[in-house]
Amino acid sequence: MPIHEKSLIRPENLKVHDKLSIDGVDVSGHWSTFIETRVVPDYNEALEKEIAAFPGGDKIHRCFQCGSCTNACTINAIEPRFNPRYWIYLIRMGMEQELLRDKDIIWQCVSCHKCTNICPRSVEPEGVMKATALWLEEKGYTPESPSHVFDKEFSRQVFERGKIEDTEVLHSFLVKTKQPLLQDWLVAIMWGIAKRVPVKWGLKTALAQVFKPRTRSWKKARAAIEDYIYEEGEARKEKLSRSRAKQPHLEAAE
């Protein structure tokens, strides 16, 4: 059984002996659990396959753990817990419970592509982060992330009309995430710009709310896109149910 190094040095896994003497040597104090027998009973052997079934996750099997992604990561620099290399390791190992410790920050990847740019194995870790975030939601481990709400609203406009409209994206996102529309920074921006911008420009923006920008004769493209989304969704469900069926012990646990 592989040793999962990081969990061993967590405070709750360090044993404390108030008074312990071995061969006449006083070894009281903190003890690493290295020497204790450990059993990990809850491997999810299908974890890698499950995540590979989500958009962007299909190249995860290529990783050889060089750590270039984490080293290059924009978010890792401001949040050290954000560690793509480590999460890929956990996923490939099937250590679902360990992965869940970081479930609330995985969606925060900003897609700067520094990892995909540097990766010597073409894993596209950025895609793996997105796939993992979607998997967490699908399994019900996390609520829908604001990023996913945004992606869905943006894509809805593209699929419906062929184009997006900036103000509608902003407005719908704030409404869907239950945030106040009058954000202090937004008010400051509007106020600053209102002093300089001609009426014509304001009118143009207002008109765009009524006559939304759209691609002409988009109907057939929209139908093709909707069919494709349905097909891919069904294919994904099929893949997921197959990977679960191979693990009857997990099915029973759920």
Binding site: V158, A221, E232
Partner: peptide, 16 residues
């Protein structure tokens, strides 16, 4: 008669 390039958002939903 152009359309949206798909941007990051559509890629996250369905890459192709």
């Amino acid at each position: 008669n152009w359309n949206c390039c798909g941007a990051m958002e559509v890629k996250n939903i369905e890459p192709k």
